[in-house]
Structures are given as C-alpha cells and as structure tokens.
Simulated scan of single mutants.
Amino acid sequence: MLPYKPFAKNTRLKWLKLSRTNITTLTPDHFYGLSSLKTLSLSRTPLQSISAHSFVPLKALRYLDMDSCNLTRIPQAVTTNCHLSRLNLANNMFHRSGSMPAEVMAMLSGLSQLRIDGNPLTEFPASFLLISRENTRLLRHLLHSTMTLPVWLREPCTPYYWAMHLTNRTTNLKGFVHQYNAEKMRKSGLGYCKEQYEWMMEQIEVYRELEKNSEDVKFNLAF
C-alpha cells in the first residue's frame, strides 16, 4: 500500500509509474501534492478500492493508464480530471453494459482516446451513444475496439447500432459499418434493432445535460 501523502513534496513531477505493484487501494491522500502530474500509470495493479475523489489532486492530468487492473466498471474517480484527454482501460473485466455507466461516460465524452480493447464485453453499452458525433477521433477508437470484442458477435444488433449512430457522419467512419444498412437489417430478421436503438437514445437523453456541462467546464478551464 502507499503511505500517507507520499508525494506531498513532488509538486513539479510530470510523470509517475506505479505499474506492476501490489497497491489495492487509492485515496486522495495518495496523490496529494502532484498538482503538475500529466501522466499516471497504474497498469497491472490489482486495484480493489478506488475512492471517488482519488484523482482530485491531479489537476493537470492528461493521460491515465489503468490497463489490466481487474476493474469491473469505469471508476467514478476518473470524472474528476477536467483536462484528461487519454484513458486506457484495456484488458480489464468489463462484461456488461453497466460496466460503462452513462453518468461516467457523459463526463468523459471530450476524451480524444479511450481504450477498452481486451475486455470481455458481451452487452452493448447505451452510454456509447452519448459520445458527440463531432468527436470522430473518440468514436473511431470505440468503434474499432467494439469490433474486436465479444459483443460484436454475441449481440447481433451491435453493428447496426453503430451504423445508425453514424448516419450522416464522415465517410471515414461510415465506411467501417456501411454494409450494415437497413435492408440487410430487415433481411437478417433484426428489424427490432432500430426500435432498441431509438429506445436507448431516449434513455440516455437525461445525461445529455451532464455531458454539456462537462464540456462547458473544460472550455472555461481552457481559457
């Protein structure tokens, strides 16, 4: 475990690697003083308890690496870093759609990179639909990752959800799912996918304001 405020005097530190340690618990005290830290790696750390405010002291954090940390869902703690642009959550234990809760994804919609490859995801997270269609870079990362996960085959509507969501988007993105059109959906007996997509869009609408507020905060901090 980490001692009490171990980095209190490291106010100028930019990069910290705690990978492959046996740390199981994270609290705000552990990162106290790291106000200039831009990169934090916790990969291959068997995390069991993460306080919702653990990363609050990391005011300048840009990249957080939590690859292979045995996580079953995205920690609420990652939403406290307004400047976070890259988040690595690959090779964890995300099985269900609830592993990527909408209230968390709404706060992460401004990321430029979110890695989730290597997770045994078998359900399509409706929270993916919160990502702004203008954020093509993040959409590309999520689309490519989804195509490699069990959900792409286990939940047959998944390709069609993406195809519908990327309607009227750039050819660059649509090209990956162009074959999953309405005609093929009907011929495959998957016409209900459209209804489910519309239902999911309605369900996540309540989180749109949270997403907007998150973007406003980041914009204000930038100036």
Rank of each mutant, 00 (worst) to 15 (best):
residue 163 A to G: 12
residue 61 L to P: 08
residue 46 P to D: 04
residue 74 I to D: 12
residue 20 R to Y: 13
residue 33 G to K: 08
residue 125 P to W: 04
residue 86 R to E: 12
residue 158 T to K: 05
residue 107 M to R: 02
residue 57 P to T: 08
residue 111 L to D: 05
residue 97 S to G: 12
residue 31 F to L: 04
residue 119 N to C: 06
residue 68 S to N: 14
residue 62 R to N: 13
residue 4 Y to I: 13
residue 127 S to F: 00
residue 150 P to V: 05
residue 133 R to E: 06
residue 84 L to V: 12
residue 124 F to Y: 15
residue 126 A to V: 06
residue 174 K to Q: 15
residue 159 P to Q: 06
residue 98 G to C: 03
residue 161 Y to T: 10
residue 1 M to D: 06
residue 94 F to A: 04
residue 167 T to F: 11
residue 77 A to S: 10
residue 200 M to L: 11
residue 77 A to C: 12
residue 13 L to C: 05
residue 204 I to W: 00
residue 187 K to S: 10
residue 203 Q to M: 00
residue 37 L to C: 14
residue 33 G to D: 10
residue 86 R to T: 11
residue 86 R to G: 08
residue 178 H to F: 05
residue 84 L to W: 14
residue 13 L to P: 11
residue 219 F to W: 03
residue 181 N to Q: 12
residue 96 R to F: 08
residue 140 R to C: 07
residue 211 E to M: 14
residue 221 L to M: 08
residue 147 M to D: 01
residue 181 N to I: 01
residue 66 M to Q: 09
residue 70 N to I: 01
residue 27 T to P: 00
residue 200 M to I: 02
residue 115 R to L: 15
residue 62 R to I: 14
residue 70 N to Y: 06
residue 218 K to A: 13
residue 116 I to W: 05
residue 16 L to E: 09
residue 197 Y to K: 00
residue 9 K to G: 03
residue 159 P to Y: 02
residue 118 G to R: 05
residue 69 C to G: 09
residue 189 G to T: 10
residue 98 G to A: 07
residue 54 S to N: 01
residue 50 I to Y: 09
residue 94 F to I: 02
residue 157 C to K: 03
residue 108 L to D: 11
residue 184 K to C: 02
residue 90 A to G: 04
residue 19 S to H: 08
residue 172 N to W: 13
residue 115 R to G: 04
